[in-house]
Simulated assay, not measured.
Amino acid sequence: MKFSVINILKKEWFLACMVVAIVLAALIPQVGQSDGILHLNKVTDIGIALVFFLHGIGLSPQALKNGVSNWKLHLFVQCATFVIYPMLWVIFGQGMLSIMPHALAFGFCFLFVLPSTISSSVAMTAIGKGNIPGAIFNASLSSILGIVITPLLIQLFMGFEGVQLDIMSSVMSISKMLLLPMIIGQVLRPLLLSTFEKHKNIVNKLDKYVILLIVFNAFSDSVSEGVWHSFSFEYVAMSVLICSVVLVSIVQLMVWTTKRLGFSHADEVAAVFCGSKKTLAAGIPMAKVIFGSDPRLGMILLPIMIYHPLQIFYCAVLANRYQKKAFAI
């Protein structure tokens, strides 16, 4: 039993550390708060830039070229990400605002308008014997489109609730934080790729370390400002339930739709995984820019923090099923 727990913790260290970061924020918020002892607001900005610089180095231009021609797949994935998901807020947003704190409801709004994730979408597609070039292209395209579309949708949806954003400022800030380092990484890829490959294990964990620092910082700020005083466990349970229902419903809708559209097995796998997933790695930095120093940031981030492990688990199960199906074909 002891060894099984240790093995689980080793395997799921990131999720365990997210919990630890939240607990530490509750116990010692003065350490993690912005402009506190560690100055995490500045440290995380540097970390985010470094992570996306490394993403730029690791992104293969050839893989993007190989995936560019499948317009049917591209259209499906981008519509799923930036149309179907946001429609959930259009349909259910007012209901959410009426049953939970507005910051938590806005967190779901933010979750629904986020772009897809790159690394896990491609990884799940590979496991499921899907269209890997198509997955790389769509996940990357989604991330780039999200730099503009996510702030626009946030303003559109949350503007009705009196939340005003400087759209151009948000887009420019997100571009500088995420896109510019990625472009620089692409430019320097020929020079740095061999070094990148040698240290890939460390590089692959760096984004998780940065996310943990951002989570610690965001929750420390919200604890310091007393945001959680009126928050109950019921809201956490409600958030888990909503995230679970949304994830399963969206995935099953995509499975059903891709079959009706006559997608091949490879394209179906890529479409389902790229279209259903939401990015934590880019989402948290985006939230930092869009919501700035809002002390409710920790609560706003809660839905994506819950959604992330759920989508990893559920999509991993689905990827294994797709793999068995591919071998049976």
Rank of each mutant, 00 (worst) to 15 (best):
I118H: 04
T195K: 15
I57D: 06
G67F: 03
S119P: 02
G162N: 03
Q164R: 14
K42T: 10
I99W: 10
F3K: 03
K2T: 05
A103E: 13
Y314K: 03
E268Y: 11
G185E: 00
G107P: 12
L97I: 10
A25P: 09
C17G: 15
F233S: 13
A103D: 13
I300H: 09
L188Y: 00
H308Q: 08
I46K: 10
K277M: 14
V269A: 14
G56M: 15
C243L: 04
L9V: 13
Q323P: 09
M299G: 03
F263C: 10
A126R: 06
I304M: 13
V251D: 10
N70G: 11
G159H: 01
V122R: 05
I167H: 03
I8R: 12
P295N: 00
L192P: 15
V5C: 05
V122Q: 01
S121L: 08
S69T: 11
W13S: 15
L297K: 10
A287N: 06
A103S: 15
L302K: 03
A63K: 09
I127F: 10
E197T: 10
I154N: 12
L64F: 03
S119H: 00
M158I: 05
T258I: 03
Q94E: 09
I28K: 02
L297Q: 08
G162H: 02
S175E: 05
M305K: 08
S60N: 11
Y235N: 07
F291Y: 11
N70I: 01
D267I: 09
L64N: 01
M124N: 01
V83H: 07
L153N: 08
I37K: 10
M182G: 12
G283E: 09
A105D: 09
S232N: 08
I28N: 00
L38A: 07
I48H: 04
S230H: 15
L40Y: 05
V83P: 06
G128S: 14
V163C: 06
L247Y: 08
S232D: 12
A105K: 05
V187C: 15
I91C: 14
L104N: 13
L88C: 10
I6T: 00
C315E: 00
M177P: 01
Q78R: 06
T125M: 09
K208V: 06
P86I: 07
F327D: 12
S140F: 15
V51I: 13
L241R: 04
P115G: 04
S230L: 14
V163Y: 11
V77W: 04
L104I: 11
E234D: 08
E268F: 08
L179S: 14
A271K: 00
N138V: 07
L145D: 02
A25W: 04
V31M: 06
Q164D: 11
T117G: 09
F263K: 08
L192Y: 14
K2S: 03
Y314N: 04
D294T: 01
P151M: 03
I184M: 12
V171H: 06
Q62V: 05
S98L: 12
V163G: 01
L261P: 11
Q62E: 07
M299K: 03
I48N: 02
F106W: 12
L54A: 14
I250G: 07
L241Y: 01
V203C: 02
S239R: 01
F273Y: 09
I184R: 00
M87T: 11
Y307Q: 02
M1R: 11
I154L: 14
P181T: 14
I118M: 11
S222C: 01
